Computed example of a mutant assay.
Amino acid sequence: MDSEPPFQDAYKSLLEEQDNSKAVKLIDEFVEDCEVPVIDLSRLNGCNNEADKEECKKEIAKASKEWGFFQVVNHGIPQDVLQRMRREQVKLFRQPFQNKAAGKGDHKVSDLSGNNSYRWGTPTATCLKQLSWTEAFHIPITDVSNSAAGQPNRLSLTIKEFASTVSSLAQTIAEILAENLGLKSAFFTENCWPNTCYLRMNRYPPCPLPLKVFGLLPHTDSNFLTILYQDQVGGLQLVKDGRWVTVKPNPEALIINIGDLFQAWSNDAYKSVKHRVVTNGRVERFSVAYFFCPSYDTIIQSCKDGPRVYRKFSFREYREQVQEDVRTTGNKVGLPRFLLSEGQ
């Protein structure tokens, strides 16, 4: 049984736009490769002097302000954990499509929770530029922990180990960014717990229209931080100085990017930048993203004195507004919805 989602059948009318000249090229064939800042986190441990440690923290803050993205090496996540995570992910996506869609099979994420977390394509797409050529499993970390504690399997144990190590890294980065703003804040340890975060395993199948269909639509992330483990196929692009650039894969690195909540919390000191994934006409691409999120009731407001850029809001309110905008307009609006009016 075929493991591929039925993109060709489900989106036949959209794909046929190419035959009547309605389809436009969404992606420039020649987007410049760039080396996103690479930061060696080994300098944060006690084996190095204090000057090295402080310089590392400054590099993290600078990249978060100027790029909104950076890569980290010597990050403390064992290569064995990353390799096992990739193997389990590939086995999961190799399941027959019908099993994935129904949450069945021997190797399934529905074992981790009561609901099937599998998604593919964009059901609401009305044109090619709204279509994401991807399949994914969205997994709340709390479900992984409960499964591993109950009747663990290799998949749940691997995901739990990966999530716990990446969670610790996310807390470290968040605390460094808070400290750079002059805060010794317990905000993240008090509000961003393992059971408020989630994991998304992505697969981008080969696409017959690689310059006309996105793997993942241009967007910003709605959380505080995202930590990404990707393969070496490439395809991640971000906006830098008003133009799209391609992130060159680094086999030794994890990618970290700032989300909308951190931009609002920092009063625009750190930048949540638009990014996307482009498709490949020949080969598939895999990635795993860890989303560092607070509880839904957490209030987001500027941590800095002085004029505030955004009104305060809860994470629940933000998520609901994003979902409503996507449902009614087909696009995420995001932080501009929460700007303070002049004079407030």
Rank of each mutant, 00 (worst) to 15 (best):
D2K: 11
D2T: 15
S3G: 09
P6F: 04
P6K: 04
Y11P: 02
K12S: 12
E17G: 00
K22S: 02
K22G: 01
A23F: 01
V24E: 00
V31E: 09
D33S: 13
C34T: 15
E35Y: 04
E35N: 11
P37A: 09
P37C: 08
D40Q: 08
L44F: 07
L44W: 03
N45R: 12
N49S: 08
E55P: 09
E59H: 13
I60H: 09
A61L: 04
A63H: 07
A63K: 12
S64P: 13
W67N: 02
F70P: 08
Q71N: 12
V72H: 03
N74W: 04
P78R: 06
P78Q: 08
Q79F: 09
Q79M: 12
V81M: 10
M85L: 13
R86I: 03
R86W: 11
R86V: 08
R86P: 04
R87T: 13
E88Q: 15
F93P: 04
F93H: 05
A102T: 12
G103M: 06
S113W: 11
N115Y: 03
Y118L: 00
T122N: 09
L131S: 02
T142K: 15
D143R: 07
V144E: 01
N146A: 15
S147A: 15
A149Q: 13
Q151V: 15
P152C: 00
L157C: 14
L157V: 10
E161R: 11
S164I: 03
A174D: 07
A174M: 14
I176A: 06
L181D: 07
L183I: 02
K184E: 11
K184P: 06
A186Q: 14
E190Q: 15
N191S: 06
C192I: 15
W193N: 10
P194K: 12
N195P: 05
T196S: 15
N202L: 13
Y204A: 01
P205M: 08
P205S: 02
L211H: 07
L211Y: 05
V213A: 01
P218K: 04
P218E: 09
N223H: 13
L225Q: 01
L225S: 01
L225N: 08
Y229I: 03
Y229K: 08
Q230E: 15
D231H: 08
D231Y: 02
Q232G: 11
L236F: 07
Q237D: 01
L238M: 15
G242Q: 13
R243E: 14
T246R: 14
K248M: 10
P251T: 10
P251L: 04
P251M: 03
E252L: 14
L254N: 02
L254S: 08
I255E: 00
N257G: 03
I258T: 03
D260I: 01
D260N: 13
Q263L: 10
A264N: 01
W265V: 10
N267R: 02
V273C: 11
V277Q: 03
V278T: 01
R282I: 05
E284H: 11
P294T: 02
S295V: 09
I299W: 09
I299Y: 12
S302T: 06
C303W: 06
P307S: 06
R308Q: 13
R308I: 05
V309W: 01
R311N: 08
R311L: 09
K312N: 13
S314M: 04
E317P: 05
R319I: 15
Q321E: 13
V322L: 11
V322C: 13
D325G: 07
V326C: 07
R327V: 00
G330L: 00
P336C: 08
F338V: 03
L339S: 12
E342D: 14
